[in-house]
Simulated assay, not measured.
Amino acid sequence: MPNLEQLTTPCLILDEARMTRNIRRLADKAAALGVTLRPHLKTAKSTEVARRVLTDGVGPATVSTLAEAEVFADAGVHDILYAVGITPQKLPRVLALRDRGCDLVILIDSIAQARSVAAAARAAGKPIPALIEIDSDGHRGGLRAGDTDLIEIGQLLHGSGAGLRGVMTHAGESYGVSGWAAHAEFAAKERDATVAAAQALRAAGLPCPVVSVGSTPTAHAAEDLAGVTELRAGVYMFFDLVMAGIGVCDTDDIALSVLTTVIGHQHDRGWVLVDAGWMAMSRDRGTSAQAVDQGYGIACDIEGKIYPDLIVRQANQEHGIIALRPGSSATLPDLPVGARLRILPNHACATAAQHGSYHVIPADGSAQLRQWHRFGGW
C-alpha cells in the first residue's frame, strides 16, 4: 500500500475510491427519487471532501456548526442549511454570513426562537430564513405536524420578514433498527410528517417551498418521496461499523480507517497492543447495542483486509488492546512489534473528529498519498 509504512501513527486514512463510490450511490438514489440531495458535511469537515460531494462544489450543503458554515462559505459554498436549533447569541454570525452572499438558512422549533429571529431580522432590516423542525419519530427536537405552535411560528417568521423557508425532519430513531424494510418505514414517517406540516402551513396561507428529510439509513431506503423537495445525509460518504451493523452498507464500503502500529504483546492473554487508543478511535461504542459488538473497531491488515474476529477489545488514552472476539475459534494472526494495522471505526464522525487531516489513498491508483486538512470547532 503506497506510503502507509512511512506515516506516523496513529493517523486517519481515507480510501478515495470507496468514498467516491459511496457518494455516487446516494446521488443516483436522490436523482431516481426526483429530489435534491443536500449532503451533510459534519462528518467530513473538509473542503476537499466538500468539492467532491457537493454539486459543482458549491452546494446545497448541510452543516452542524457555524464554524463549518464559515469555512465552507470561504471555500465558495453558498447554499447552506445550519441544521441545529438556533440561539439568539448566534444570530449576528448568521447575519454576517448572509451579508457575505451565503444563503444560510437556520433551524427552529419553538415560539421563543421564532420571536428572537423575527426581532433580529427586523432590527437588521434583512431576512434570516428558517426551516421549522418537525418531529417525525420522537428522537430529539421538533414539533409534531399538528402542533398549534407550527402555524404561529410560521406567522412570526413570515410576518417579520425573517422568512419562512419550509420544514425539515431527521429520523434519528432509524439508527436503532436494522434492515432495509425497517429503514424504509422510517423514511415513510419522515415524508408523511413533513408533507403534513407543509400542507398545514400552506392551508394557513403561509409559504413552504422546502420540505427536507433525511438520515443516512432512511436516505438509502426511501422508496417514495412525493411532496418532499430535498434529501439529507452525512456519514454515507465514509460509512462506518454502526451503519454496517444495521444493514445500510457492507464493511467493504467503509472508506475511513485509523492506521496504527503494534507496540507490544501480552501473549498469555492473547493481546496485541497498538498505539491507537481512544484518543485516535474515540470512545464511541455505538455497536455495543447491536447484534454484533465490534468493540472499538475491527482490525485489518495494512491493505485493508479484515482479520477474522479481530477487534479492538479495550482502549486507553494512547493504547489499544486488540484481541479475538469472545467465543471466536479464529487464530490470532502473527503481528510482530512494528506491524501496521488499519482499524475500521464504529462511528466515522467521532473518529474523524480526533484527527486534523486525512491521509488519502488516491482513487487513481497513484503511489503518492495525498493529505487533506480537516477542521473542528464551533
Rank of each mutant, 00 (worst) to 15 (best):
L95G: 01
G159R: 05
V105L: 10
L131V: 11
A118F: 11
G138A: 14
K126V: 01
L95A: 08
H139T: 13
K90G: 07
S160I: 06
A119M: 07
S110V: 04
L150V: 03
H158D: 15
L91W: 11
A96D: 10
A130I: 03
G154W: 10
P92K: 00
G142N: 13
I134S: 10
I132W: 06
G142H: 12
G125N: 04
H158T: 12
R115P: 08
A119Q: 13
C102E: 02
A96L: 01
R115Y: 08
P127Q: 10
C102P: 01
A145H: 11
H158S: 13
L143T: 04
H139V: 12
E152Q: 15
G161L: 05
A124Q: 04
I153A: 06
G142Q: 13
L97F: 00
L104Q: 05
Q113A: 12
E133N: 09
V117W: 12
H158I: 01
S110I: 01
G141S: 15
Q155H: 14
G101N: 02
D99R: 09
D109S: 07
L95H: 03
P92Y: 01
A112I: 05
R115D: 14
G159F: 09
A121S: 15
I106N: 03
L95Q: 07
E133L: 06
K90N: 08
D99W: 00
I111Y: 05
L95D: 02
A123T: 00
R98T: 00
I153C: 11
P92C: 00
G141R: 15
P92T: 00
G161W: 07
I108R: 02
S136E: 14
T148P: 15
G154V: 04
I132F: 06
S110E: 09
H158Y: 12
V105I: 12
L104N: 02
R140V: 14
A130M: 09
G154P: 07
R98K: 04
C102K: 01
L143I: 02
R140H: 15
A114L: 08
A145D: 14
A119Y: 05
A114Q: 08
I111Q: 10
D137A: 15
I106C: 08
E133G: 05
P92H: 01
R100I: 00
R98V: 00
H158Q: 15
I111R: 11
I153Q: 11
A145N: 04
S110R: 08
R98L: 06
